Simulated scan of single mutants.
Amino acid sequence: MKLLRSCGGCRDAACCRPAATRAVLLGGLLAGAIGAGCLLCYEAIVTATYGPFHAGDPGKSHANANADAVPAGLFRFGVVLCTALGSVLAVGVVRRPARPRQTFVRVALALTTVWFALQLAASHTTTSARLLLAGDHVRAAAIVIPGLTWAIRRAPRHLQLSHAAEKRA
Results as ranks from 00 to 15, higher is better:
A48K: 02
A122V: 03
L25C: 09
P100H: 00
I143F: 01
V80T: 05
A140L: 04
T125D: 00
P100V: 05
V46D: 03
A72I: 11
V46E: 08
R96H: 15
R139N: 12
P71S: 06
A165E: 11
G37R: 03
A69L: 09
F104M: 01
A169L: 13
A134F: 05
R11F: 12
R96G: 14
S6P: 14
R154Q: 15
A122H: 07
P18L: 08
V94Q: 11
T127R: 13
L3T: 14
L39E: 14
D12E: 13
V138P: 05
G78D: 05
F53E: 07
L120M: 15
A31Q: 09
T149D: 05
C82F: 14
A134H: 04
A155C: 07
G92V: 02
G9I: 09
A31K: 06
G51I: 06
S123L: 06
S128E: 13
A142I: 02
N64C: 13
S87C: 05
L81G: 00
A142W: 06
V114P: 04
A134K: 00
G78C: 04
W115M: 09
G51D: 09
C38I: 09
A33R: 01
C38N: 02
R153V: 11
G92Q: 04
G9Q: 10
G135I: 00
S61A: 15
T21A: 14
F53A: 02
A67C: 02
G147D: 08
H137E: 14
R95L: 09
T49V: 11
R130N: 07
R99E: 08
D12A: 11
N66T: 13
V70K: 13
H163K: 13
T125F: 00
L29V: 07
R106M: 11
A129F: 02
V91C: 14
C41R: 06
L109I: 01
G51K: 08
R99I: 01
F75H: 15
L3K: 14
T113H: 00
A14P: 07
L120H: 08
